[in-house]
Amino acid sequence: MASTRFQLTRDSFGKLVLTTEEGEVHVGVSPVRAFPIQAPSDGISVVLSDGKEVAWIDALADMPADIRALVTDELEGREFMPEILRVNSVTSFATPCTWQVSTDRGETEFVLKGEEDIRRIGATSLLIADNHGIHFLIRDMFTIDKHTRKILDRFL
Rank of each mutant, 00 (worst) to 15 (best):
V46I: 15
L152N: 05
E107F: 09
F80Y: 07
V90S: 15
R33H: 10
E76K: 02
S3G: 10
G114W: 06
T72Y: 00
N88F: 05
I121L: 12
T124L: 10
T9V: 15
G122I: 11
D117P: 09
A94E: 15
G114R: 07
T9Q: 14
L112V: 04
G14N: 03
P40Y: 06
F13R: 13
E109I: 06
V87Q: 03
F142G: 10
V54W: 08
L48S: 10
P96H: 02
T19K: 15
V54Q: 08
V71H: 01
D145C: 12
N88E: 13
V17C: 00
E53W: 09
E116F: 06
S125I: 00
E53M: 12
V47A: 11
G23A: 02
M81T: 05
L60R: 08
V32M: 05
T124R: 09
G122Q: 14
E79N: 09
L60P: 06
E24K: 12
V29W: 02
D73H: 02
D58C: 08
G133R: 06
L156T: 12
V25T: 12
T148E: 05
G51E: 13
G114Q: 09
A123R: 14
A55K: 05
V25P: 03
V29E: 01
T103K: 04
P36H: 03
D42E: 06
I84H: 12
S12H: 15
G114M: 08
M81I: 08
L75N: 03
L60W: 02
F6H: 00
V90M: 12
I118D: 10
E21D: 15
V29H: 00
R5P: 01
F13T: 15
V101H: 09
H26T: 09
M1A: 15
G133I: 07
E21P: 03
V71R: 00
G28T: 10
D62G: 05
I57L: 07
C97L: 05
R68T: 06
